[in-house]
Design a protein around this nucleic acid. Structure first.
Lengths: 201, 201
DNA sequence: TAACTTGACATACACAACGTATGCGACCAC
DNA sequence: GTGGTCGCATACGTTGTGTATGTCAAGTTA
């Protein structure tokens, strides 16, 4: 049975998060009205405040969901690029970075995770959620430093820089006049910079 | 004589911008009240709307000022590190990057330029102001690609990535538990990544 | 210098949005 | 089935932005 109350509640939470993703992506966090939001979900602000506390809480929930989706996709791409050889591990990292750049072209991710998220919730490294995205990169960096594929650099610093550079590059690509044209340039520059961390052969 | 009206007006603009810097840095853009702001400056919202149009206009003016200060400081540091040899040009770029990281530890720059600025005004590459900060980096990158010190990478992409990586690293440093301890790690990781763009000897 | 014009800024108002306090009705326990 | 709980709706107070209007000093012309 699973408890009819809780079941309905989870359903409403999902509705609200979905409506918030849409509204935040289209209008930005500050300009999104909670009245409109909840009306779109077929509810009222009462449900919102009960479930998420305040507007920030709702944003945190949305960001957590997007972060999870991004990490899952990066993991998928990385796994596809990674064989068993050590060289492939490195290529997997580059592929993940390129994947981040491409993912961040999505207006939802850009507006919510990269712009409004940090401004409202603070730096991603302190988000209450799991930061799956950063964790995914950290996992790869850790493995590579351990195995000597990457220079013995500080793991946290390298992870943050790689992740930040990729996402920042995406902001630039999206803001440019011709995104599809500059995308490969961004990926190439990112790959070159990342290679600065690669151990000498 | 310079016109007493205009003179007074410029003085008031400066007062408002100064008060806004303080308020935005302390409370964040969204939570800073324009009534309080203007009262601190000894004026009312009337002056603010007359001079800057709206709240965004005020933020744009503040960001432009901070951006100019950052660029000036980067130029200063770069000039100090740059001799005439080609190797020194490269070191100057690294020094500028490290300078950005350190500058971004200032709460004013962090909160206003790195967090609220992009969220409210959009991506820095599209800011109405001169983007002195990015322009400074671009100048250095351009010179290095021309002289063969840097790999023949796309200048815009490389500039944006270098700048973005440095500023993003600063966000991480500032958010960490022990900023003074992780700062050198961030600078080292940044330097290594930047070296990925360096031409082979 | 006196009348007129301009414009920088203050004042007053309308409206939108957030957060909270209160109320209601459906589900669960016994 | 009756009392309690809890998820959510309703109603209200407060705050803050933007605009429309008023005002007075600095400039202009004769």
């Amino acid at each position: 049975m699973a408890g009819k109350r809780l079941e309905k509640m989870e359903e409403n939470r999902a509705k609200l998060i979905a409506a918030a993703r849409k509204a935040f992506a289209e209008k930005g966090f500050a300009n999104a009205s909670m009245d409109d939001l909840t009306a779109d979900a077929g509810l009222t602000r009462g449900a919102l405040y009960h479930n998420f506390g305040d507007k920030r809480g709702l944003l945190a929930a949305v960001v957590e969901q997007l972060d999870g989706e991004m990490a899952a996709r990066a993991r998928e791409i990385g796994a596809k690029s990674a064989g068993n050889g050590e060289g492939d591990i490195w290529l997997a990292l580059l592929a993940e970075g390129a994947a981040y750049i491409e993912m961040a072209l999505d207006p939802e991710i850009q507006r919510i995770v990269l712009l409004d998220g940090p401004a409202v919730l603070g730096d991603p490294s302190q988000w209450p959620s799991q930061n799956s995205c950063l964790a995914e990169t950290r996992k790869g960096v850790h493995a590579m430093v351990e195995s000597g594929v990457m220079k013995p650099v500080d793991i946290e610093a390298a992870s943050r820089l790689l992740n930040g550079a990729a996402l920042n590059a995406a902001l630039w690509v999206a803001a440019s006049d011709n995104p599809t044209e500059v995308l490969p340039k961004a990926i190439e520059a990112f790959s070159l910079m990342a290679c600065g961390l690669k151990a000498e052969p």
